[in-house]
Nucleic acid binder design. Structure first.
Length: 416
DNA sequence: GGTGTTTTAAACATCG
DNA sequence: CCGATGTTTAAAACAC
């Protein structure tokens, strides 16, 4: 019944053949800039290294891992904040990394990210102010942070959707009030699975430098946005009106799963949170696609993970240039950003600010300028702040001395 | 080689 | 009708 005839060009592009060729051709496309990447679908760039074959198994990642890390700082939730991987133009050295990383960055910018789709989605969602994103924004985020996908065939989007749909960690939430123009739903991270995702992220070999903070697993402690809560609440209201049983927060959107071979995901995940999962989940339905289970096992053996410590990470804001798909449909359109409910967030929470910023800067150069400008502004502010402090300190000491002299004079007068 | 996990592809449905 | 989104199935690829 479906639009079989209406196979879009995009769908056609998702054919396996295209995948391999295009994907690989980009891996060693050193210095491929966003603009270049935007320009058209995979240009036939030369692959002069056949070891490019195994993108992930390739040892390059061993080298890149360290460098990737230089591109991450950590957000309020202990989540790596992916700074521009494609800050690769050379003269703009990331403030957090030595310049010697640059050439490596170029590689990592165009090679496949070491994260599973679940983790990518998780990061995307968590970096949004309201912890809810429409798929389109998830695409955007991933594209933005991992330019690899800009040149990868669009099959990855299918994978993203597939993951969202199949992975219990993600919950679909109907879009709220007003805003009719948005298509599809918002996707949030199920707070109960958040610790698992964080764990998985933590155990990624590329996050070993990180100091992750695993928040308590209770929904309250999660980063549920008011919007999310109200959405779930709304859904439940509707359900109640329909005479249906309200959904628990956790399973606000029930997912029917029949993934034949994946019955054991949940047990692995629960190992990490045995005390946190109040509700039992039918193993047969639990296809967490675990970001944490296998990744955890796999990576635990590979890397030593630093201990958890800091909760007070600095959320690094670095404006990024945007990648607009060649067809222009992949959207970094700002109205999408404002669409949902980001306006609910008066502070314009850091994560998405970068997106908004990206909208204003179509090209790399202005972006760099902006970044520099931002740094200068920050510097100025710091100076001002320091100045103010000094000023206050000065005033205080002045006052102190004035008071003390006044006191001594007072005493002298009394003696007289 | 077996098992489990993740990715990829594809078909189909639904919605705006 | 079209395109984006969401769901589901199947299979390949991969790691352990």
């Amino acid at each position: 019944m479906g639009p079989v005839i209406g196979m879009t060009p995009e769908k056609r592009a998702e054919t396996p053949g295209a995948e391999k060729v295009a994907g690989l051709s980009q891996i060693y496309k050193m210095g491929s800039l966003p603009e270049a990447v935007d320009a058209a679908r995979p240009k036939a760039t030369l692959v002069d290294n056949e070891s490019a074959d195994d993108e992930l198994t390739n040892l390059n990642w061993l080298h890149e891992s360290t460098n990737l890390l230089t591109n991450f700082s950590f957000g309020s939730e202990g989540l790596p904040i992916v700074s521009p991987l494609y800050d690769i133009e050379g003269d703009d050295v990331p403030s957090f990394g030595p310049s010697c990383y640059q050439s490596q960055e170029k590689k990592s910018a165009t090679s496949k990210p070491p994260y599973s789709f679940s983790l990518l989605i998780y990061m995307a969602i968590e970096h949004s102010p309201n912890k809810c994103l429409p798929v389109k924004e998830i695409y955007s985020w991933i594209l933005n942070r991992f330019p690899y996908f800009a040149t990868a065939p669009t099959g990855w989007k299918n994978s993203v959707r597939h993951n969202l749909s199949l992975n219990k960690c993600f919950q679909k939430v109907e879009r709220s009030h007003g805003k009719v123009n948005g298509k599809g739903s918002l996707w949030c991270v199920d707070p109960e699975y958040k610790p698992n995702l964080m764990q998985a992220l933590k155990k990624q070999p590329f996050s070993s430098k990180s100091t992750f903070y695993s928040p308590p697993a209770s929904p309250q402690s999660g980063s549920l946005s008011p919007h999310y809560l109200s959405s779930v609440l709304k859904q439940n209201q509707v359900r109640t009106l329909k005479g249906e049983k309200p959904l628990p927060l956790k399973t606000a959107m029930q997912k029917k799963r029949s993934y034949s071979n994946a019955f054991n995901h949940s047990s692995a995940m629960r190992l990490h949170e045995s005390d946190s999962l109040a509700t039992s989940i039918d193993p047969k339905e639990d296809h967490n696609y675990s970001a944490s289970s296998m990744a955890a096992q796999r990576c635990a053996s590979r890397s030593s993970v630093s201990s958890l410590s800091s909760v007070d990470e600095v959320y690094e804001f670095i404006p990024k240039s945007s990648h607009v798909g060649s067809d222009g449909s992949e959207g970094f359109r700002s109205e999408e950003d404002t669409d949902v409910d980001y306006e609910d967030d008066p502070l314009g929470d850091s994560g998405y600010a970068s997106q908004a910023c990206a909208d204003t800067t179509e090209k790399g150069q202005p972006d760099k300028k902006m970044r520099k400008q931002a740094c200068q502004e920050i510097d100025e502010e710091l100076k001002e702040a320091a100045g103010s402090l000094l000023h206050l300190a000065g005033i205080r000491t002045c006052l102190g001395s004035l008071i003390s002299t006044a006191k001594t004079q007072n005493q002298k007068q009394r003696k007289k």
